[in-house]
């Protein structure tokens, strides 16, 4: 066992959704307990003291960073802030979420602190003085356990699929962290464009209805959209369907697309290549509609229907509208 360390930092720097934040908090809390370390949560503050007190229920300490410069596009500012925090607190691990900013700064933060970094952790543990994670590799065909041999271990995790933090009897302490330095901004934000799509981003969606090559053309994807509306969910597609131009690339789920973790992933006409499964493995429930009972997708399903999607979609949507009315 190497020199005992005392802190696990959970960096909640760019929350995208409640569930993702909760999962991230949970991951950090459990790791800190395994390591026997203090759990420090870093968040942007202090405008919203109410949410800060919420965080305090899952942390020993909450550090609200006070800086006018901390906004989404300020990668450099967050990097400097966390670097300074890292050098002062000497954490065993810094845990980040799966938002773009966290993913972006993970390796740089590790490099600056002389630690080790990795992304897309599905589980997070500590063994023999080192942080270990598991993650899906080789296009979903294998699961690797990876030991981070540098300290701190800087890891971003699949936050939305992780269990939330256990509530503490006594909330942790809330402190403010002044970060007055304004680093030289080499990179400047010019323009921001939000997606026209309604609702959650795919990574955070609770219900996803998804279509693949088996749908046979672009038209059925319109029907999927209607079904998603009934379920208040999002639509997605397999790579094959996106490559054929039936659905936009922003819908793509899988190894080279989005990695999602909904409560229900309903796959229609998707055979279930491992690269696709890799993107949906964290779903709470997977269901499929496919004509081929031997399609690999069914191996990953909780429930499934062997039928032709075209004959199912209409009645299914009606029935669901009725049930959920």
């Amino acid at each position: 066992m190497s020199e005992p360390v005392s802190t696990v930092i959970t960096a909640l720097i760019s929350p995208t959704q409640e569930r993702a934040s909760a999962g991230l908090m949970g991951a950090g809390q459990r790791l800190s307990e395994t390591v026997g370390a203090e759990h420090v949560v870093v968040a942007c503050g202090p405008e919203d003291s109410e949410s800060a007190s919420g965080l305090a229920h899952g942390a020993d300490r909450v550090l609200l960073v006070r800086s006018p410069a901390l906004v989404r596009d300020r990668q450099e500012v967050w990097l400097q802030c966390l670097t300074r925090m890292g050098s002062e607190l000497n954490p065993a691990a810094i845990v980040l979420g799966n938002d773009a900013l966290s993913q972006e700064i993970t390796p740089r933060l590790a490099h600056r602190l002389g630690g080790a970094s990795i992304g897309d952790a599905q589980t997070l543990t500590a063994e023999e003085g080192h942080i270990s994670i598991t993650r899906s590799v080789y296009g979903g065909k294998a699961m690797a356990k990876v030991k981070l041999q540098g300290t701190p271990a800087v890891v971003w995790v699949r936050a939305p699929s992780m269990d939330p933090a256990r509530g503490r009897a006594t909330p942790g302490q809330i402190e403010e962290w002044d970060f007055a330095t304004e680093p030289e901004m080499k990179i400047q934000l010019l323009e921001t464009q939000m997606d026209a799509g309604e609702g959650d981003r795919l990574e955070d969606a609770r219900i996803i209805v998804s279509g693949g090559r088996g749908l046979g053309g672009p038209e059925p994807f319109e029907k999927l959209k209607e079904l998603a509306k009934v379920l208040k969910g999002q639509t997605a597609a397999s790579r094959a369907a996106c490559d054929l131009g039936w659905a936009p690339h922003s819908w793509q789920v899988g190894q080279t697309g989005k990695k999602v973790a909904p409560q229900l992933y309903l796959a229609s006409g998707i055979s279930g290549a491992s690269q696709h499964i890799m993107g949906i493995a964290d779903s709470k429930a997977i269901a499929a509609i496919n004509t081929d009972p031997n399609a690999p997708i069914f191996k990953h399903c909780q429930f499934g229907l062997v039928e032709d999607f075209h004959q199912v979609i209409g009645p299914l949507q009606e029935k669901l509208a009725e049930l959920l009315a």
């Binding site: 970094s117 690797a144 030991k147 429930f303 229907l305 009645p315």
Partner: peptide
């Protein structure tokens, strides 16, 4: 800095409950 300690090929559970029914309507 990052070292693989274990690599496994996961086996899919394969415990899908196929929806049965006498008619298509019932199944849907």
């Amino acid at each position: 800095l990052v070292r693989v300690t274990e690599l496994t090929i996961p086996q899919a559970k394969g415990d899908c409950a196929f929806i049965e029914g006498a008619t298509k309507e019932e199944k849907i």
